[in-house]
Design a protein around this nucleic acid. Structure first.
Length: 107
DNA sequence: AAGGTGACAGGGT
DNA sequence: TACCCTGCCACCT
């Protein structure tokens, strides 16, 4: 089997994020033991080349929608989260750890 | 080949 | 879930 690229593995985990849940870059990086969270952020930057990747469910450790500027519209990320029942105020997720999801929880 | 960049994280203040 | 500084690793020019 061909070795998947770094971002391919990140997409695989992001696709496993349940509806209405969110996770952080560091959590994904730690789960994949790929190195640092910056790699995950860089990978999600190219996520638009691959549909089906709910990048809006991935935020930084502060629960802030740090990547909203990379969406077609900066407000789309917040709307998507609120649509899934995640309350967002001032570009930050309310009760972040309550909506937090860990990939190891699925395995 | 070398340096800069990036949707970050963690600890100290 | 403050704010500031440093470390982190792959990709691009």
């Amino acid at each position: 089997m061909a070795k998947e690229s770094y971002f391919e593995q990140v997409y695989d985990v992001v696709r496993c994020i349940p509806h209405g849940r969110v996770t952080t870059y560091g959590t994904i990086a730690d789960f994949l033991t790929l190195g640092s969270a910056r790699m995950v952020g860089w990978a999600l930057n190219h996520s638009f080349s691959n549909d089906g990747v709910p990048a809006h469910r991935v935020v930084n450790r502060k629960g802030e929608l740090s990547g909203r500027n990379h969406f077609p519209t900066p407000t789309m990320m917040q709307e998507l989260l609120e649509n899934e029942g995640v309350e967002v105020v001032d570009d930050k997720i309310v009760d972040f750890d309550k909506h937090f999801w860990n990939p190891t929880d699925e395995f």
